[in-house]
Design a protein around this nucleic acid. Sequence first.
DNA 1: TATGAATGAGCTTTCATTCAT
DNA 2: CATGAATGAAAGCTCATTCAT
Lengths: 215, 215, 215, 215
Amino acid sequence: MNKKIMEEHRKTILLTASKVFAEKGYYNTRISDIAEKLGVGHGTIYRYFKNKHHLFDQLLNFVVSGISEIIKSEDPCVAVTIDDYYKQMARIGWSLFHFFAENRELANVIFYFEAISISRQDKRTYKRIENFSHTLEEYNAQYLQNGIQKGFLRKDTPVQETALVINAMVFEAIRRIFTLKEKDWNKSAQAWSKTILDLVTRGIYKRVNADLQSS
Amino acid sequence: MNKKIMEEHRKTILLTASKVFAEKGYYNTRISDIAEKLGVGHGTIYRYFKNKHHLFDQLLNFVVSGISEIIKSEDPCVAVTIDDYYKQMARIGWSLFHFFAENRELANVIFYFEAISISRQDKRTYKRIENFSHTLEEYNAQYLQNGIQKGFLRKDTPVQETALVINAMVFEAIRRIFTLKEKDWNKSAQAWSKTILDLVTRGIYKRVNADLQSS
Amino acid sequence: MNKKIMEEHRKTILLTASKVFAEKGYYNTRISDIAEKLGVGHGTIYRYFKNKHHLFDQLLNFVVSGISEIIKSEDPCVAVTIDDYYKQMARIGWSLFHFFAENRELANVIFYFEAISISRQDKRTYKRIENFSHTLEEYNAQYLQNGIQKGFLRKDTPVQETALVINAMVFEAIRRIFTLKEKDWNKSAQAWSKTILDLVTRGIYKRVNADLQSS
Amino acid sequence: MNKKIMEEHRKTILLTASKVFAEKGYYNTRISDIAEKLGVGHGTIYRYFKNKHHLFDQLLNFVVSGISEIIKSEDPCVAVTIDDYYKQMARIGWSLFHFFAENRELANVIFYFEAISISRQDKRTYKRIENFSHTLEEYNAQYLQNGIQKGFLRKDTPVQETALVINAMVFEAIRRIFTLKEKDWNKSAQAWSKTILDLVTRGIYKRVNADLQSS
DNA sequence: TATGAATGAGCTTTCATTCAT
DNA sequence: CATGAATGAAAGCTCATTCAT
């Protein structure tokens, strides 16, 4: 068969799999559930994927490489003005929102809930997820470090911890936005984005209080 | 008294179950794994729990009621000075840390990773988790609302979103702290606590920048 | 002519099938293994053979008719001198060696090991193999009977049993010779031939002992 | 459960498995066939044997150790008179008959037909069977060597080849005797034994002819 | 005619659950 | 009460076979 058609089929299967996984969870999804949803025989899926775990693996690949691409395209140390710095922060968040907007199911399945549970079965997958988490954290940490060096951020910012909690906020927001059924994610994504950026940059205390607090 | 012994056994089983679930994940844990770790016959577990899902259900109960107790004991609208307000925020976080310190496994397994995946099987459980999440969010939202009313927080703080991301940070911190094997969680918990409190109250921007930003 | 080409293809497939069967065994051979070795699509095989079992069936045909031809061309009662008798025995053995030399794979796969196991599935095949075994045995028995009648063999020779064990020796020898990879089977076949002929005619006892034994 | 009862069950399952394997062949036997014949659930079999191949493995063990015991109890070099030598030969054959008389199915299943085909799947099993075959051959070869040294056998006896064909005869006889349904194997075994012993010691030629032949 | 994508019957195996002891 | 032997539903996966191209 046409290589191109094969590739399309792979993608269709993968997409459907991610939907069913998102709906029922990995362990509660039968290969035949996916096949049924696709309207094909379950044997067909095995022509494209070695086994059930392989399906998950490919989805994981997709997320990992998608996000990797985003952070690769943004040098965490490039900003020289605080305005650039802020804009880059916003841009990266927005890219992530975009990525999951185009792959809504993945927000749910892969990212956070299923992945770690599944990876318990399989050392290799576990390592991959661990590495990926670490990469994300490290990336954010570099970004913060740069902010400190450039004098944008407070010197006493605990880099590692802050990197982690910021990531947590972003991914929680992603989960919220794309788990909801509403088609128009744009507006709510903007709200979330602003919330997180404001929280990160200014905190929620009124300034006068913040001054008192820090004095 | 027999009843008392029964209750002890239940707890022992539940504790062990949570450990094994934490280590292998719910779906990768066999009833016999738990029994083996307990050193009892696997039939015994069925004298205390109706089935495997029931074990999970009870663990969920435990977490839900534990956290519920914490928030019940802290009126989110009680603070009148900003100092009280800050201290309460710190105190609630610390109580959560304490709770998971005494039930380390629950931090990992139940609370974020497995729960939602498992609940996909079972509408009732799903609803419970949803409700509980909502409760936590609502509680935090009330707390923030109070902060605004009392004039501690900026008026433009988006209450719902902020409530959610703060929760996300806290639970991510909990997962980090108690997933690590180190016995002494106290010091790292303090670091995390400070990170989150600082981030929430002041943000990470230098004040001079923050002033510029907000002007 | 088309018919001719078809027939060639059939033979090529059959040859390859026998090789793969010999290597992996009937049940561990996939149709696609054979197709792959042939460098054709696996659907193609079904244009020449009804199904997998049919392939085996044809190979069995080939062996049966090949050996049948050999024994048909040698009247078991024709020898009148003991020299003729001996030479015929040698000649028949040698013809068998030749047949399997030209179809090495068949020595291994079909002929002893797989055939009976496969035929368990299929009454008709089972009967055929049984009949064929019987034919071989009967042929040899006639040959021995003739030897007794002509006064070449001891009168007390148990015809049926002897026929069987001689066959067993010959086919074991065939298996040994053609299972080995060495190209030059001629020399080793001669050794085996001599071993069996000597054993059959004289036994392995020293004559003086043989005399004692039989007295 | 009682260790003894467990062991009995294992044996019962193994026995039944060997019967079904003998009847239908390994690859045509479903685990559920064995379970059905036993009147138990098919899951039960997995409590006693890791998997289907393990069943075969244990049967192979049984045959290998049974036959090994027989040959271990008979030093192939012990005979000093030709009478001892002959008697030992008869005795060994008879022991083999006995062994398979008590395990009739094994004659069919394990010995020669299924074993090699099955072992194609599994290198380890293949090696074991190869080793075992080699052991048997070597044992017989030693026995023959001793016969030559002691002056019982002709000096020009080709030891390896003769060892092999004698084994082939014996195992063919075993297959014949125990594949038949008749309960009373004793008489036919005696006939076979005599046939083989006579063939081996004297050949089937009349003595006068043998003399001529060898002159 | 050749192909190989699609299919699903049919197998092995797992493991939560039951229940006789 | 505790046990663990027995069970069989239910899943993953294979591969001979079909048939549209």
